Each structure stands twice: as structure tokens, then as C-alpha cells.
Simulated scan of single mutants.
Amino acid sequence: MGKAGRMACIFTPYVLTIASLICIIMVGLGCTNASSSTLNNLYFLRLDISNITASSQTTTEIENALRDAGITSVTVDDLTSAIQTIENESGLADYYDIGLWGYCEGDISGSKTNITSCSKPKAEFYFDPLSLFGLENTNAGSALGTDAKKIMSVYKAVSKWMFIAYLVAFIATCAQILVGIFAICSRWGSCVTTMVSIVSFLFTLGASLTSTIMFSIAKGSLGTAAKAYGVKVSMGTNIYAATWLAVVFSLAGTIFWMFSTCCCSGRSPYGHKNRGNARGSVTAEKAPYTYEPIGAGHPPFGSQPYAPQGHNTAYPPPPAHHNDIPMTNQRQNAYEPFRHV
């Protein structure tokens, strides 16, 4: 297969790599621009506090919800006090969307939502509700106890790993596109690109799994406790579709890069020199059962030239018992019936 064939073989994984990069970029751009309606729909978790109230359920139901969330050092009275502080805070928005680099806040009017502002993008971002809601230095914040602080510490560490994984996946995918140019020339280029592609796929998969699992746990556990006070916790759909599409495209690209390593050679089969032929011409082997002239390689005429008697020659005459037709009566360039191998 020549250069044109190899370029066609490289085209498929190259397009898949670019598609994976676009999906990763979309994940990173979520919750970074308040004026973009498309980017506003890219969020991991939404915290709706528009209907927050001190208590709408019984004490037993709230205690069970806290226990399910793994919070045992906080009493219902302490949590109710914290909710009242949030409820009385006039500067809070109706809802908050959590992204990779920051968060956005907005207002709810009927069934419509409107993003009012977004935080400044920050590396290794994690959403801190205690600081955002003004509970960090209050009695309500202190009353939340050690369990809530441990949960926030774990959430902070996992968020840091998630950010690093997405960043490495982005860098590796960009490097994959650059190195993939050399894959057009040789299989060695495909081999290097394949190794970079494997790194990109593993970190894209790790980041997607981390974000999905972490925010699913947050919705399932903390969301249950928050629901008792009218707080709604929901997960976004668009950003998870983007991140898992990035995984699918990255996996498919890796498979095709591996395929281009062992197949689709860029060398032409007609450009190789034949062994024993300095000019590189192709020597055709004689096929069996074909006609060919009787030449020097076919005895008895080729093994010893025949000379008429009476001539002084170094070659003896043919044997007397030889029954072959004399060479003088043969036609020039006579053909033997078949050549056998």
C-alpha cells in the first residue's frame, strides 16, 4: 500500500482524536461564561435553594437522611440553624451550577432559569458551600461537626484529582494530534502515536469515572438530607454526554492507531530491489509447461557442440548409438514441447 493508502488509513483515527479533543474542551468550558446559553447547560451538579425552608419534615425523617449521608455528629437543631442562616441571607442566588473550573449562579422565574454571573476560572476548583453561604465563621458552621468537614475534605481531594485527570487528558490528546502527523510517514510514527493515545484514553476514562461517581454520590446522599429543607440537587446531562463521548472517541481512536501500526504500510511493493539484480528489475521465473528454445543448457546439443566429420576440432563426434536427429537438420530456434520442473 502506498502513501495515499496510508493517508486514508490514518484519516479515521485522526478524526476520532479531534472529536475527543472537542468533547474534552466542551467539558472544560462549562460554567465559565454567563452570556453563553450553550455553556450554561454544561454543569456537573445543580444546587437549587430557591425553596429552602427551615423544616418541612419530621425530626426522625431528617435524622434518617443525615445518617444515610454519613453525618452522625450533627443534630437536627444544628442543621436547622444553618438552614435558617442561609434562608435569611439575601445575597444568595436561586441556584448554583458546579463546573470543572468554577460555578455559575442564577435566578429562577417560573420554569425559566437565567444565569446572572459565573466565578473566575480556578485550577483545582472545588465547590465550598460553607464559604459561599457565609457559614464558615458562624455558629451554624461550627455546629456541622467533624463529619461534614471530613466529607468536604474528601470532596476537595477527589475534585483536585479530577481536574488533573482532565488536564492531562487534554494535553495528551493535543500531543496525539501533533504526533499523528508523523504516523502518515511510517509505522514507527503510528507506534509512538498509539502510546500517546493510550495515555490520553486512560486519563479521559479516569476523569469521566471520577466526575460521574463523585457527583452521583453527592446527589444520592447529600441530596436526600437537603431535600428535607426544600433544597433540590440534580445532575447535568450535557456535560456527562460530552465527557463519555470523549471516552468513546478516544477508545476508538486508540484501536485504529494500533491497527495502523501493524497494517497500512507506506512503502510501495514495486520499489524494492530484487536480490541479485543491481538495477532493481524484476526477474521472471520460467513457469512449468511452457515452450522455450533449445539453448545451451539442454543436452545433448548444449553439452557439446556438434562438428561435421573431417574437421579438426577438439570435440569428439556424438556417440554412434545416438538416435537424435543431427543438428544440421534441425530448424533454428527449435522449441522443445514442454519444460518440466
Score class of each variant (00 low, 15 high):
S159N: 04
H272L: 12
G106H: 07
F11Q: 02
I62M: 14
A82H: 02
A34Q: 09
D107M: 14
A307K: 04
E63M: 13
F44L: 14
C31S: 13
A19L: 14
C23T: 12
C264Y: 08
A278Q: 06
A82Y: 01
G310M: 08
L251Y: 13
L29F: 13
G230M: 08
S111C: 09
I294M: 06
T85I: 14
S109A: 15
G236L: 03
T243E: 12
G280A: 10
H340N: 06
G310L: 09
C31R: 01
D68G: 14
N64Y: 12
G276H: 09
A65M: 05
R46W: 11
K156D: 03
T80P: 01
G230S: 09
L47S: 09
Y96P: 03
G134H: 03
K120A: 15
R6I: 10
W257Q: 04
G223T: 04
A54S: 13
T116G: 10
H322S: 11
G28T: 06
A169Y: 00
L16A: 08
L205E: 03
G145L: 01
L100D: 01
F249C: 05
Y103W: 14
E292R: 11
C264L: 09
F125L: 02
I171W: 05
E105I: 13
Q84L: 15
T72R: 09
D324C: 04
N64S: 14
P318N: 04
G134R: 02
G276S: 11
L21S: 05
A82E: 01
I184V: 12
G99D: 10
G302Y: 10
I177T: 09
F125K: 00
E87Y: 15
P293F: 14
L16V: 07
A165V: 02
Y315Q: 06
S234P: 01
S281R: 10
A4N: 06
V15N: 00
